[in-house]
Deep mutational scan, measured.
Amino acid sequence: KVMEIKLIKGPKGLGFSIAGGVGNQHIPGDNSIYVTKIIEGGAAHKDGRLQIGDKILAVNSVGLEDVMHEDAVAALKNTYDVVYLKVAKP
């Protein structure tokens, strides 16, 4: 199931950690970017929809399929206060 989640960045950013990407696979044979941690009190935690194990398909208009881990981190960092995440639920 794919959904779009709109998050408003807090003082600590979006409030979640990711793993995965080309050269840094979270699941062997899979280059996808996965949510590995939700920080308590952060934007994602308060919103409640993003969960550990969700796959991040895109940030705003930037696709995160088959990208390097660093590029995924940069895509999440290089955002304004309002961030749209395209997410696939497991």
Rank of each mutant, 00 (worst) to 15 (best):
Gly10Ile: 04
Lys9Thr: 07
Thr36Leu: 07
Asp47Lys: 01
Lys46Ser: 13
Lys37Cys: 15
Val22Lys: 10
Gly29Ala: 06
Val87Lys: 02
Gly63Ser: 09
Leu85Arg: 00
Ile52Lys: 15
Val82Trp: 12
Asn24Val: 15
Ile18Glu: 01
Tyr80Phe: 13
Lys6Phe: 06
Gln51Arg: 10
Lys12Gln: 06
Gly15Val: 00
Tyr84Gly: 11
His69Leu: 06
Ile8Leu: 12
Phe16Pro: 00
Lys9Cys: 10
Ala43Thr: 15
Gly21Arg: 03
Asp71Thr: 11
Lys77Thr: 09
Arg49Tyr: 05
Asp81Thr: 11
Val22Trp: 05
Asn60Trp: 01
Ser61Ala: 14
Ala44Lys: 00
Lys77Pro: 02
Lys12Ser: 08
Asp66Gly: 13
Gly48Trp: 01
Gly41Asn: 13
Met3Gln: 04
Lys77Val: 08
Ile8Ser: 11
Ile39Met: 12
Ile5Leu: 09
Ile38Thr: 03
His45Leu: 05
Ala75Val: 10
Glu70Lys: 15
His69Lys: 15
Thr36Asn: 15
Thr79Asn: 13
Lys46Leu: 11
Glu65Asn: 15
Val73Asn: 14
Gly41Tyr: 12
Leu64Arg: 01
Val73Ile: 14
Glu4Tyr: 14
Lys6Gly: 05
Glu4Gln: 06
Ile27Asp: 09
Gly53Tyr: 04
Tyr84Ile: 15
Leu50Ile: 15
Lys1Ser: 04
Ala75Lys: 10
Asp54His: 09
Ile56Cys: 03
Val83Tyr: 08
Asp81Met: 11
Val62Ala: 14
Ile5Asn: 00
Ala19Cys: 12
Gly48Cys: 07
Ala72Ser: 03
Ala43Ser: 13
Val22Thr: 09
Ile56Asn: 01
Asp47Val: 03
Lys37Ala: 15
Leu50Glu: 00
Ala88Lys: 13
Glu65Cys: 12
Gly13Cys: 08
Leu50Ser: 01
Ala74Ile: 10
Asp66Ser: 13
Gly53Ile: 00
Pro90Ala: 10
Glu40Thr: 14
Asp71Leu: 06
Pro11Lys: 07
Val83Ile: 12
Ser61Arg: 14
Leu57Phe: 05
Leu76Met: 12
Asp47Phe: 02
Ile5Cys: 03
Ser32Ile: 01
Val67Asp: 03
Asn24Gly: 06
Ala88Gly: 13
Gly20Lys: 03
Asn60Ile: 00
Glu70Val: 14
Pro28Met: 05
Thr79Ala: 13
Lys9Met: 12
Ile56Ala: 00
Asp71Phe: 07
Ile5Pro: 00
Lys55Pro: 01
Val87Pro: 01
Asn78Leu: 07
Leu85Gln: 01
Glu4Ser: 11
Leu57Arg: 05
Met68Leu: 13
Lys55Ile: 12
